[in-house]
Structures are given as C-alpha cells and as structure tokens.
C-alpha cells in the first residue's frame, strides 16, 4: 500500500512539474498588474481587451489558418504517399522512409535555415506562403508515421474482394480501405495540427516581415514584455482544447466500461 501511495505521489509530482507553468499563465491572465512580477488583484479586463487587440487576433488567425491548411494538405499528401510506399520494393521503401524521417530527426533549426536558403535562392517572397510550405513539409512525416502501421495491418484481400465484386478503385478505396485507415489518419492529422500550432523555430526562419503567428509575435514581445492579453488568449485556447478532449474522451470510455459490466 505504501509503495502504491509513493507511486501516485511520484506521478502527481511530475504532473505538477508539467502543468505548473500552465497554471502560472492562467493565473497571470487574471492579474490586474501589467507586469508579471507582482499580483495586482483579480481582473478580467485582459479578456475584454483581447478582442480589441487586432494584432493578436490577426496572429491567431494566421496561426490557425496555417495549422489547418498545413495539416489538411499534409494529411492528404501523406496518406496517398503511404499507399505508394507500401507497394515499393524493400530497398526503395527504406530509402523513401529514411528521407521522410529527416524533418523529424533533424534539428528544427537546421530544417528552418535549409528551407530559408531554398526560398531565398528560388526568389520566393517570404510570407504566409513560405510558412505554409515549410509547415506542410514538417507535418507530412507525422502523418506517414501514424498511417503506415495501419496500412501494414490492412488485409489486401478485402480491397481485392471489393474490386472483384464490381467496385471501382476509388469507390473500393473509400468503402474498404479508408475506414480501416481512419484512426491512423485522424491521429496523424491531430499530431500535424498540434506540431504546426506549437512551432516557433521553423516559422522564425521562414516568415517574412509583417507576417506573424502567435509564436513569432510572442518572441518579438519577449524583450518589451508580454502583453497580458496573450496570457488571456492562451488560457482560452488551452481551456477550449481541454474541454473538447474531455468530451471526446468520455464517450468511448463510458461505452467500454458498460460493455465490461
């Protein structure tokens, strides 16, 4: 029993460690004093001011737009690529997967500067477009890595059976293969979306002047002091995601426990 309590305490400590900064940010979002060094009383004014701050709202819009487009495009390209990669000969497959892993294993700073050098030499105008291309690039590996295991488990006979029974290749794919892959595709999409949302380093090197995501905006604000509206915004984002996840996670859990009973 004692060891059991010790185990729980250890997990508790680690979660304190992981969530303490998040708690701090949430507290700061209600802090009436403008500096984060002292507590000036409870207020919700930063939440109200947030909706008047066009620069932050624009950065939020850019971040969301980039994350959404990048993860959708990466999911489509990645899933289609998975089908092709599975049908490759072993040696070519190893090569392609090796190249796919590069953006994941390589340091973000190297990926960032390599893309920056590419865009400069191609004469691209730095802005939303270059950020988007970079995000799609580092999102694709996450999609491929989560779809691939599902693809390996797939029984190829079911797809062929569908074709034999008269389904077209596209119809057969969406009716037979796609539902099997869906959990992998969804987790790949979610992973890509999260990575794109949280990215700073690659965006830092591939963004143009005047275009900001939340990360790059926070980075430029570091020296001047972070605007409290930013704390309010991140609290709102965090709580929204938390509530969504709790809702999504509750339903299947309930079903499972009912079945067990």
């Amino acid at each position: 029993m004692i060891t059991n309590a010790a185990k729980k305490f250890y997990v508790f400590l680690i979660f304190i460690f992981l969530y303490a900064p998040i708690g701090t940010l949430i507290v700061l979002s209600f802090n009436a004093s403008k500096t984060r060094a002292k507590w000036g009383g409870f207020t919700i004014k930063w939440y109200l001011k947030l909706f008047e701050n066009e620069a932050i709202l624009q950065a939020l819009f850019n971040t969301m737009l980039i994350a959404l487009i990048a993860s959708v495009v990466a999911t489509i390209i990645g899933t289609i690529a998975c089908i092709a990669i599975m049908n490759l000969k072993k040696r070519t497959r190893t090569l392609i997967i090796g190249i796919t892993n590069i953006p994941m294993l390589n340091a973000d700073i190297v990926t960032g500067i390599s893309l920056m050098l590419l865009f400069i030499s191609l004469g691209f105008k730095f802005g939303l477009g270059t950020i988007l291309l970079s995000h799609i690039t580092f999102c694709i590996p996450y999609v491929i890595l989560s779809v691939m295991p599902r693809m390996k488990q797939l029984n190829p006979n079911t797809y062929e059976a569908a074709l034999d029974l008269g389904a077209g290749p596209v119809y057969g794919f969406f009716k037979v293969v796609f539902p099997e892959l869906l959990p992998g595709i969804l987790s790949g999409f979610l992973m890509a979306f999260t990575m794109s949302l949280d990215d700073f380093i690659i965006t830092h090197f591939t963004k143009g002047a005047g275009v900001d995501t939340l990360s790059t905006k926070i980075y430029t604000e570091v020296k001047k002091g972070i605007k409290p509206e930013m704390y309010a915004l991140s609290t709102l984002i965090f709580l929204t995601v938390l509530i969504l996840l709790l809702l999504v996670n509750r339903n299947p859990g309930d079903k499972k426990s009912e079945v067990k009973r």
């Binding site: 979660f15 992981l18 969530y19 303490a20 900064p21 998040i22 701090t24 940010l25 700061l28 984060r36 060094a37 999260t194 949302l197 949280d198 700073f200 939340l214 990360s215 926070i218 980075y219 570091v222 972070i226 930013m230 704390y231 991140s234 984002i237 965090f238 995601v241 938390l242 996840l245 996670n249 859990g253």
Partner: peptide
C-alpha cells in the same frame, strides 16, 4: 490515448509562453 493526451495537452499552450512562465516561477 488518455495518457498520451496528458502529455500532448501542454503543447496546446504556446511553447514560448510555457517556457517564459518558468521565469515567473
């Protein structure tokens, strides 16, 4: 998935802000 989520969840709060919060702490 729940365990994985608990570890991925902090990533939804910006990485720079989370690191900055350590200054305050």
């Amino acid at each position: 998935s729940f365990i994985v989520l608990l570890f991925i969840l902090p990533m939804w709060m910006n990485f720079l802000l989370r690191t900055l919060a350590w200054q305050t702490l």
